[in-house]
Structure formats: C-alpha cells, structure tokens
Design a protein around this nucleic acid. Structure first.
Lengths: 276, 276
DNA sequence: CGCATCGTTGAGTGAGCTCAATGCATGTGG
DNA sequence: CCACATGCATTGAGCTCACTCAACGATGCG
C-alpha cells in the first residue's frame, strides 16, 4: 500500500505547500494518473461565483456581495483517489469540504472495529461540519470513486461570517440542515423495515442526482451493498435481497450497481404509506 | 417506594422561584397547578451570569464579557406544564429554548400518525436548533413533567454573535454537538440490539444527571416505556422486557420508573464490547 | 366508581440475521 | 496466458430476536 503521501497530510495547503500536491502520483490505477500528470495541480484555486455548483453548494442563496467575499478566500481544490480518506475520525478539524465531483461516505469506527456509515455525499454537498463541536473530526470521509473537493478553511469562514450576517446565517443553516437530515435518518432507522429503508434511500439519492442534472430514474451506485447496509442499519445480504425483491415487483431494474427506477410512485408508496 | 420526590427535581433552588420549589411535592397533579396560579408569570427574566446552570448551558465556556452580553438580552422564562407542548413541528421558528428545570422530549409525527421521539432534554440543554434550517421547527417539544425554560430569541442571539466571535463559535459548536449527538444515536439504532440500546440510553442519562449534581446510580425516568421505545427504535414491550432482563441479571433495580443502577460497569460492557 | 393510562408478562410469528455456497469480475504473479 | 486470489453480489437454509396480539394488574383521574 503506498497510500504513503496522500491523505493524512495536506491540511496545511492553504498557501504554504502547493508543492506537496504536484506529484500527486499513484495510488491505485492508471487512467486517472495520466490525467493527473497533465493537470496543473499547482495552486488550483476555485471561485464560487462561477462554479457550476454554486446553486447547490455553499453559496446557495447568498447575496452577490457575499459570494464575492467567498471568492476572495480562493478555496484550494484537492483531488482524492477512490478509497482514499479525505480526513480521519479524530483528526484535527480545520477544513470543511465541499464536494466538486465524485462521491464520499462518512463513517465511524465502532468499538468492535466494524464500520458505521453515517452519510453519503455527492457534488455540491458539504462534509466535516461535525468537527466544529470538538475541534476534531467526529467521522472519517472516504472517497468512493476518484473525487475532487474544495477545502474551506473553517477559520476563514467564521471570519467572513463575523463581517456578514448573510454568511453567518448560511453557516448556521447548513448545520441545522444537517441536524434535520440526521433526524429523518433516525426516523428511518427507528421505524422502517428493510423495503422502506431501501426505497427511501433510493428516492433520496434519485432526487439529489436530479437536482444536479442527472437522471432521476437511472444511475450508478458508488457504494457497496455493505456500505448501503451499514447506512440503513441492515446486513448486506438483506440489501441484496431487497434489491431482488424490488426487481421482482417490477419497481426497479438492478444490475449490480446500475439501478433503473421503473416505478417511482410505487417505490414512494413503499414508505409513505407506513400504515402498519 | 414512594421514591417520589427525590432526585429528579430540585435543581432550581437558586434564588428565583423558591416558591415553586418549596413543597417539592409530587410532580404531576393538582398541587403544582395551584402554585401556578399564585406565580407572578409576568416578566420573569433570567440572567445567565448567576444561573446555577451556567456551566452546562448556553454560556458554557464563554468569556465573562460575552456572558454579560447574554445577560443584556434578559431571556424570558416560561413555564410549561406536563404534557404541554413548548412548540410544535412546523411552527415558525423564533426561539431556542434552554431547559431550566424539568424534562422534555422532541418528537416528530410520522406519516401514519405515530410519534417518533428524537431526543430527551434535561436541565441545561438546548432545544429548537433544528428550526434554523427552514425557519420552522422540524420537531415538537413536549414537557414530560412541569418544567421551566428560558426562551432565547434566535435573532438576538445571531445579532450578538455578529459582534462577538466567542458567541458565534459557541452557537456553531452547539449545533455541531447536536450533529455529533445524532450521529451516535444513528450508530445505536443501526447496529445495536435491544439490551445494548437500553444500556446506552441509561448510561447516557446517568452521566447527564451526574453532571447536574444528581445521583448517577439512582433516578426517576420521566418518560413512558413507549417514549423510550420510540427513541431507541423498539416497542414498549421490548423495553419493558429488557428492563426485567437487566433486573434479573442484577444490573439494575427497576420499580416502574424508578431506576437504580447496581452494576454500571457490566451495563457499560453490555454495549462497549459489541464484539458480536 | 369506571375509565384511561401505564407497565408487565406470555404465546406465537416472522423479518431479518448468521452462516455458507456459488458466480462473476478483476487483479496478480509465475 | 493461465492459475489463483480477492472483492462484490446473489441466493438458500435455518435460527433468533424482537414484533404483534392479548390478558392482566396497578395507579390516578373525572
């Protein structure tokens, strides 16, 4: 495993060590590598104002003047390889990350070593806000495919918020949204059966993909059955069986990780009814 | 038994409403009512700086100057009767509430009308932060016994935060803490069995009570078996049976809602081990 | 007193777990 | 290029934990 260089580093990068990023090299496969070499990985800063994700991501609903301020922070971009961790549970919290491309999972390690997945993140979504509480990340974030993020120095964000009530509210709202999101997941875990859980998961993912311009009815799962199961509180076998059941009911077409939703309404009914 | 009064109450006694506390009596019925009528429910403002909960509540870890600023806001205090709602799911979000005394549950109503409890709150804990996201409360808060809260106008809090990075960080940290708390609950719901869940619940409650100066080993539950079950993702019958099982294993003594933890270590092992 | 709420306990059942075998795809080393 | 190992997904068989349904006692309230 030469996961050598990668992860556990980088947080410094603000401005100091662009060097570190240059020879991003290996990690797993060839194809992306080639691209990597070509890319001018030097500074690699991103501007929110002309980012294609601006309507979904951090600047969502911000006034133009506030977005301009965000721009002034020039968030560093960072590549993350499939299976590579962006940050680890317990690591010092410095950055909040916005997903530019790719998919991540957030997870905790239980006392017995098993992994508990607490969320999946796709483009335009934020990760790391759970680190604010303790100053350390409460969970790890791992890329499920090659990905790219904006690293947002939390200290800069709060500085900016101090001078702009718009930004301040935004940060608060983002955190609150996270609380609400987790509440609904708790509801799911506390009171739904396997079919309802998987249906809820698929429809949620479908909507998020749709909001990003992808097909709501056909997509490729980035996560394994075990990861889905961990997230939904069931075993990978039950996930697999439930996929098969949905296919037999003609709600889905499933081919490994490729999913086509045939009957979204029936799928929605699967957990909306919830009577008995 | 009649372990009636004991533990769970009393915290108030500071200076404010000795009235309320004098006849520490029961908890549910008539007597308290009478008191209410007598109480001058008019202004009833509270100062954080000399609140006996200041080390646990909002001002926790704040600089003295910031606490002084909090004082200037003079939060209104509000009484809430047992079974009465402090706010309802969907209601416009204006206040964050700090529990002064008593116990609350936060809950959501599911599509089929059943209730899902998402948390319990005791003295010094904050409620309502989930309303920031949408501007409406995402859950309802209901008193499980006669209680008193400080109503903290969220708008004032953010104003104050705008001028004080200490306050700003505090609010952020509080919200983040909520995120972390819910993550661990998700872990619980996603990967623990009935005994582990109940053990985790009891130990958590025990610690929170201890932090407030109450006995960690003996306390009175304010919630029904059904509410515990909803919170922990199991039926009330299973909660009841699990209590009985713990009693047979000599980990607890249970008399209805009165709990005595006999063997906290064994109880902790019940879910810390978690190795299959 | 009668009704409602709460808690306990029993009996039976079933959803989802564990364990296990198999297939497929991909990567690796001889 | 083949042999083999590894990771992921599917499916079956059997079991068990927690659920449902039900009866019952205790407590408190109108």
């Amino acid at each position: 495993m030469q996961s050598t260089d990668n992860v556990p580093f980088t947080k410094e990068k603000t401005m100091s060590l662009p060097v570190l990023e240059a020879p991003v090299v290996p990690i797993r496969f060839a194809p992306q590598q080639a691209l990597d070499v070509m890319a001018p990985v030097a500074p690699m800063k991103a501007l929110c104002s002309n980012c294609h994700l601006r309507e979904l991501c951090l600047p969502r609903g911000m006034a133009g003047s506030d977005v301009a301020r965000l721009d002034s922070l020039m968030f560093a971009r960072r590549r993350v390889r499939s299976a590579q961790a962006l940050y680890h549970e317990g690591e010092r919290f410095q950055f909040v990350y916005a997903v530019r491309s790719g998919t991540f999972k957030s997870s905790l390690t239980l006392a017995d070593g098993r992994e508990q997945v607490s969320s999946f993140h796709i483009a335009g979504e934020l990760m790391g806000l759970d680190g604010v509480a303790q100053g350390n990340h409460a969970s790890s974030a791992t890329a499920l495919e090659d990905a790219e993020v904006c690293a947002i120095p939390y200290a800069h964000l709060t500085e900016l918020a101090a001078g702009s009530s718009g930004t301040q509210h935004l940060v608060s709202r983002l955190m609150s949204r996270e609380i609400v999101r987790e509440q609904s997941l708790m509801m799911l875990l506390g009171s739904m059966n396997a079919e309802e859980r998987l249906a809820a998961f698929l429809l949620n993912l479908s909507q998020r993909l749709k909001a990003r311009g992808y097909s709501a009815s056909e997509f490729h799962l980035r996560m394994t059955r075990a990861e889905i199961g961990s997230y939904l509180g069931m075993t990978l076998e039950t996930v697999s069986r439930t996929f098969s059941a949905f296919q037999q009911q003609r709600l889905l077409e499933v081919d490994k990780r490729h999913i086509r939703i045939i009957d979204p309404d029936a799928l929605a009914r699967a957990f909306e009814v919830r009577v008995h």
